[in-house]
Amino acid sequence: MDFFILNTFNKLRLADSIQRKKYVISKGIDPFFSNVFRAYKFVVLYFKEVFKAPFHFREVINQCFEVGLRSLSLITLTGFVTGIVFTKQSRPSLEVFGASSWLPSLISIALVRALGSLVTALICAGKVGSSIGAELGSMRVTEQIDAMEVSAINPFKYLVVTRVTATTLTVPILSLYCGFVGLLGSYLNVHTHEDTSFVAFFENGFETITFLDVFTSVFKSIVFGFTIGIIGCYKGFNATQGTRGVGRAANEAVVLSMFFVFVEEIVIVQVSNWIRNY
């Protein structure tokens, strides 16, 4: 009889411990999945709203200027330095094989295929993503978003759709600009060493660039721009807990944007390589 009671007691304890473990696991997992689901709904809502009137063209243009102007100086500097440093670092290795004349091609491929869009996306994730997250977060905690809603203004349409559209349009332009500035930096280095003319450098550089390279680069930048905008807006729009929440929204916008930019970079490069080899 004692054994039966003990056995039942042990079974109950085991069931209770399993239940607790389940609770601990679900406590961590449930918010994660509900967050993913909310983010998914946020993205779907963007695509529903972006093609529906009214279209706030003026606000989109304002935001394009904001995104462009906020990052232009840093992109110019980083692109230029990347071009110079990449050329300087590649030169000794190429010279060993007597292939320093390949420098323009090498730099062009590196900048167009990878560096231009990636560097631009990372800078924009830091500058623009954080700023969107902080701006919308502060609007949320100071009830400015609620004020729009009660004035019969759709805050999602006015704040989110305009900003995401602006980053999606502007980041590709900035990426192309970054690539061009990088090539200028590279040209400066090549010109000082080999006295190569501007035209010859660019002719040589663009010889190896294919349509697929440019298309992939622009496509990648569009995806990066969308990612930076939507994550910044999602984090800001759903900010809670006052000023602390605003800081967290800005920080999470940067970290998540960079993470997704790297993941997308790997996936798109892989797919473009398959297409190239096909």
């Binding site: 609007m139 100071t142 009830e143 609620d146 004020a147 809603e149 009660v150 004035s151 019969a152």
Partner: peptide, 14 residues
Amino acid sequence: RLRIGFSFQSSALY
């Protein structure tokens, strides 16, 4: 909502 005015505690000015 256009027929209702809401004055927020924090004023909520843009």
